[in-house]
Amino acid sequence: MLLVNEKDLVVPGQVLAENEYYPGRGTFKEDNRICSSFVGLVSVRNKKINVIPLQSKYIPKRGDVVIGEITDIRFSMWGLDINSPYTGLLPASEVFGKDKRELESVFDIGDVLLLRVVDVDEVKKVKLGLKGRGLGKFRDGILVYITPTKVPRLIGKRGSMINMVKEKTKCDIVVGQNGVVWIKGEAGMERIAEKVILMIDREAHTSGLTDRVRELLDRLTGVEPDIQVEESEGTEKPEIPESEDFEEGSDESEDVVVSPESEDFEEGSDESEDLEVEPENVKVDSPGSESMEEGTDTPDAEEGDGEAGDAEVKDENNSER
Rank of each mutant, 00 (worst) to 15 (best):
I192S: 01
S269K: 10
S232N: 07
K184N: 12
D285A: 10
P279D: 04
P287L: 10
S269R: 12
D285Q: 10
G185L: 03
E230Q: 10
V258R: 00
W182E: 00
V257H: 00
E261L: 10
P238D: 04
E236T: 14
S253K: 08
S269H: 15
S272R: 14
S243I: 11
E271A: 12
R212T: 11
E190F: 04
A193H: 00
R191H: 01
V180L: 01
E280P: 02
G249K: 02
D245P: 05
G188W: 00
A204S: 14
E224G: 08
T235N: 13
E233H: 11
F246N: 13
V213I: 15
E215C: 06
E231M: 13
G268V: 11
E242Q: 11
E236H: 05
E242Y: 09
T210G: 06
Q177Y: 07
I200D: 05
Q228L: 12
G234H: 05
D245Y: 07
I183D: 00
I200R: 01
A193N: 00
G188T: 06
E230Y: 13
P287E: 08
S250L: 11
E266S: 10
D245N: 09
W182A: 03
L198H: 03
G222W: 03
S289H: 13
E231D: 15
E231H: 10
V284M: 14
L220G: 11
E247S: 12
E273N: 08
D218R: 05
P238R: 05
G288H: 12
V223W: 05
E266V: 14
V181K: 01
M189F: 11
D226W: 06
E266M: 13
S207D: 12
E230C: 12
G222E: 06
F246K: 07
V277C: 10
E233I: 09
V256L: 08
D201Q: 03
E233Y: 09
W182C: 02
P225F: 05
E203I: 08
D226F: 14
F265Q: 06
I183S: 02
S232T: 11
R219Y: 14
S232R: 13
L275T: 03
I183H: 00
E236K: 13
S262H: 02
E273R: 15
E233C: 06
